[in-house]
Amino acid sequence: MYLLSKDLIFPPVHLANEDGLLAIGGDLSAERLLLAYKSGIFPWYNQGEPIIWYSPHPRMVLFPKDLKISKSMRQLIRKKEFRVTFNQNFEAVISNCKNIKRNGEVGTWITDEMQEAYIKLHKKGIAKSVEVWEKDKLVGGLYGIDLGSVFCGESMFSKVSNASKIAFIYLVHKLEKENYNLIDCQVYNNHLASLGANEIPRYEFLKYLK
């Protein structure tokens, strides 16, 4: 494991171990976070732990053209029971992602330090959010890092069934219209696989970042 210094530098990602763990330490400054994402690296650790940086292989991604929308989801979207906005309440979205209870999970990986750092990135126009509303109540959403041609998804939440899927689908449609290459989903999970995400080799992912 590579121990980071105060210098703004990361080791080559091919030095990550089989779990994707690459480095430890450093800080969550806007400059370091942006360098990390542009290099295919992201922080992932728990409260009370040092900052841990990952670059997994393979990488879970979604190409916008591969988005899968089930018949039931199409019907739900047509009902227009939800209203979707972009970047209208980033702080509420990340707070909900941090605090919502998830099945099989204890605590959260979104530490206080991370929450503060990503809010600063949002104010710089780098971190973006999607909000899903039921009438005037925020019931779902997601946030991530916008690199211009790649959107790096970080976390999502739902307070009602399918709200996070709605957020994701609207995001993909928006990014497809803007000719984004892909959405970075980081590591495999069944939820995103059901929406069309797949794993690709890390070296292929890095080509899209460049």
Rank of each mutant, 00 (worst) to 15 (best):
M1N: 11
L4K: 09
L4H: 07
D7M: 10
D7E: 15
L8S: 09
I9E: 15
F10W: 06
P12I: 11
P12V: 09
V13D: 03
H14V: 12
L15C: 07
L15S: 13
N17V: 04
E18H: 14
E18N: 13
G20Y: 03
L21Q: 10
L21D: 00
L22G: 03
A23V: 04
L28T: 07
L28Q: 08
L28P: 10
E31K: 15
G40H: 05
F42H: 05
P43D: 09
W44D: 07
Y45V: 00
Y54N: 07
P56W: 08
V61S: 09
L62Y: 03
L62W: 05
F63I: 12
F63W: 07
L67A: 01
L67I: 12
S72Y: 03
R74L: 11
L76H: 06
L76T: 12
R78K: 15
K80V: 01
F82K: 04
V84W: 07
N87T: 04
N89M: 08
N89E: 12
I94G: 01
S95R: 14
I100K: 10
I100C: 05
G104M: 08
G107H: 09
T108L: 04
I110D: 11
I110M: 08
T111M: 02
T111I: 02
D112W: 01
E113W: 02
M114R: 05
M114D: 04
E116L: 13
I119Y: 07
K120I: 10
K120F: 00
L121A: 08
L121E: 05
V130N: 01
V132K: 09
W133V: 04
K137D: 10
K137N: 13
D146T: 06
V150G: 01
C152M: 03
E154W: 02
E154P: 12
N162A: 08
I166T: 14
V172Y: 06
H173K: 15
H173M: 11
K174N: 14
E176L: 13
K177V: 08
L182Y: 06
C185S: 06
N190L: 11
H191T: 02
S194P: 00
L195W: 01
L195A: 06
A197V: 00
I200H: 02
P201R: 08
Y203I: 12
E204M: 10
F205D: 05
F205N: 07
K207E: 15
K207Y: 10
K207G: 00
L209T: 06
K210T: 13
